[in-house]
Amino acid sequence: MDKPINQKAWFLVLPVLLLVAFSAVIPLMTVVNYSVQDTFGNNEFFWAGTAWFEEMLRSPRFHQALARNLIFSAIILVIQIPLGIVVALSMPRKGVGVSICLVLMALPLLIPWNVVGTIWQVFGRVDIGLLGHTLEALGIDYNYVRDPLDAWFTIIIMDVWHWTSLVALLCYAGLVSIPEAYYQAARIDGASRWAVFRYIQLPKMNRVLLIAVLLRFMDSFMIYTEPFVVTGGGPGNSTTVLSIDLVKLAVGQFDLGPAAAMSIIYFLIVLLLSWVFYTVMTNYERGGQ
């Protein structure tokens, strides 16, 4: 049953188009415009060509921020995806427990991002925070303000706290859609718990896992508010990820040209990597094991 061709459907899409054009296309054009111009102030601009792009692509500062962001996203995915799957597998399937788990798990997702930062900023403090205080009491030297490694530890555990539930909820939705007969057949076939997971549950979660990986990659790659509140990008520049660097460049230093060039490169990297993830995962799903 194919959908009928109807060009009038454009009228239905028009409001979305206008709105998104206003809120996305115009700003994006501004960015492109800045990225190829230079200014000495007084609203006088002149053509700079690809100079800003070249400068940005050669800049060690950009490379470092990009590297930090890639490492951050990689760690996030490596922790959150398996953990989310384990949590989803552990969730109750019926009864009041389901509602309780859903509500409690969704809670961190609905906290404003700077409050998430504040919660962990406080929680990790050695003097007044439970985490920092406990670690100190255990004799572990922990201070996220001074030690880069501790700062990383804090923002990673914060992100795990903040977003693992999203992965878990997605996987849970995939799990509950598996018909009971599959589990019965597996029992009859004498399948082990691992085999049930590997050959029934994992294949059925494929689709939601793709979405989970994409969302978690994109959002961790664009992260700004939470680490900014906790560490402000420090100590030094150790937790300055791309977004933090970009805002520093654009709002802090008001270097519009480089900031615009960086924005475009940044956006393109997100698009490219998302596309790679998407292609690899859909191929994996279609192709071999």
Binding site: P27, M222, L242, I244, A250, Y266, F267, V270, L271
Partner: peptide, 9 residues
């Protein structure tokens, strides 16, 4: 997929 930081300014 657009980073909010890109659009802020």
């Amino acid at each position: 997929m657009a980073p909010p930081a890109v659009f802020a300014l």
